[in-house]
Design a protein around this nucleic acid. Structure first.
Lengths: 252, 252
DNA sequence: AATCTTAGGATTGTTGAACAATCCGGGATT
DNA sequence: AATCCCGGATTGTTCAACAATCCTAAGATT
């Protein structure tokens, strides 16, 4: 909406018929034979559709695209300088992450969570996070949780609300990461991304996350001490309180 | 692969240039104003891409497409009589469900679970299912669990291995459904769909599911009696045993 | 013989344009 | 006022083309 991205394509130009730019530098030698697809994605140039999706995800996370807003194919297509078909693929990606909702024949809209969705999201979080912390984890993973706590403290000291929010997300992602499960990691990432759509209303309250700092620390200490049951209970209480607060900030 | 589906499109023909079939029957009046998108999908004709995805999902579930097999865009495009672009959208859908893996510039392949994936999937199931059953549920939801148990018994009596397998899936879906969470339901559905890709090797063993019947019944009885903690432990043990067995059937 | 290089074909990634189907709003009609 | 109808806008889908990439198989080099 705000800034046009004239150069969004990959190496090649607009594939304009006639325009011959024979600069085939062939960058990147035959490095590695069998990379896992995940690792490959980080090396190989991601597809244009992926980059469009990433851009939209970013705008979503920054609150440039408010919930309920409509995303018109042609508009985004022009704005980002890509084909309408590619935008379409990006939409499919975002829709599968629930960041966007498709209304057949009517278009895609930025997802907006209703009261029921809030409870739903917190149910998922309770199930996964509490189970994860009750299972404990390797020292390295526990150290990562501690690191997230410190990150939050540093952000609070610097009065950086933005960093505080992301630190909080790191904390919860680190907890799920205890389980060492790729699938749970992505599920958690999606759920947090969904919630981020919401928080731009709540985050105006400067003290919103600050109150959680002490909780995070206490949970982390219990985890480090091997008191997994207690850590689980603390985390559960935390999530319940958070949901309550979320519902209070939001109507209904 | 086996059967060509010549008529896969919706109401209109191939949109052949020149062919003017002005039969605008305008079926379906202005029924309902604000249907939830989920409910809408069941009413409105799903998109062609969705139907292609559904068809592939079916072939996947039936074991027609073995893990590791390659899905060529042009082939499926011709076989189903749809555009390559549409096939592409269907692929995106399946990829988001992990039923299929995209290798950039190389094509999409039927997902194949390695030993690590098996553990991963079972981790997800342990987290979600056990949490769900420990939370209990409404009488109606509990009755649904009981119904799934009975369904399995009936299938066993009829010596219908196929039905036995689906009944078992119903059982576990019913357990997750106790939580009344749309998101958890879809997560569980995806995980089960992933596992189904696998079971076509294991299911040859006629006694595979049969041994689980008694377990399911015992778990259900505990649930009905309100012994949630015990039900959770039983279910956990069940899942652990199942994973073990799965690993035994499979190499490594 | 083993390896490096090169060409060729096949498939994916992306584009642009076209058209059908559908939805939305605003007049015209009753 | 309620209903019908029509025209504009947007989505859904197709088609054809081309660039980029990968795979294989010869062919050349050591």
């Amino acid at each position: 909406m705000t800034s046009a991205h004239p150069e969004f394509r990959g190496t090649a130009g607009p594939a304009a018929p006639g325009g011959a730019t024979p600069v085939g530098t062939k960058a990147g030698g035959p490095a590695g034979t069998a990379l896992a697809s995940a690792a490959r994605m980080r090396v190989a140039t991601p597809s244009v559709a992926d980059r469009v999706a990433a851009e939209l995800r970013l705008q979503l996370a920054e609150g440039l695209l408010l919930p309920g807003a409509r995303l018109t194919e042609s508009t985004i297509s022009e704005e980002l300088g890509v084909s309408r078909n590619t935008v379409r693929e990006a939409f499919a990606e975002l829709a599968s992450e629930r960041l966007v909702v498709r209304h057949p024949n009517r278009g895609v809209f930025v997802a907006s969570l209703g009261p029921g969705d809030i409870h739903d999201v917190y149910t998922v979080r309770r199930f996964i996070e509490v189970s994860a912390i009750r299972g404990g984890g390797s020292p390295a993973r526990i150290a990562a949780v501690r690191a997230a706590v410190d990150e939050g403290r540093a952000a609070a000291a610097a009065d950086d609300e933005e960093a505080l929010g992301t630190a909080n997300q790191h904390f919860h992602r680190a907890i799920v990461a205890l389980a060492e499960s790729r699938r749970l990691d992505t599920i958690m990432a999606q759920v947090l991304a969904e919630m981020r759509l919401f928080f731009h209303k709540a985050t105006v309250d400067a003290h919103f996350y600050r109150g959680y700092l002490a909780d995070n620390d206490e949970i982390c200490r219990a985890l480090e001490a091997g008191q997994l049951e207690r850590a689980g209970e603390l985390l559960l209480a935390y999530l319940n309180r958070s949901e309550e607060r979320q519902r209070a900030v939001h109507g209904e």
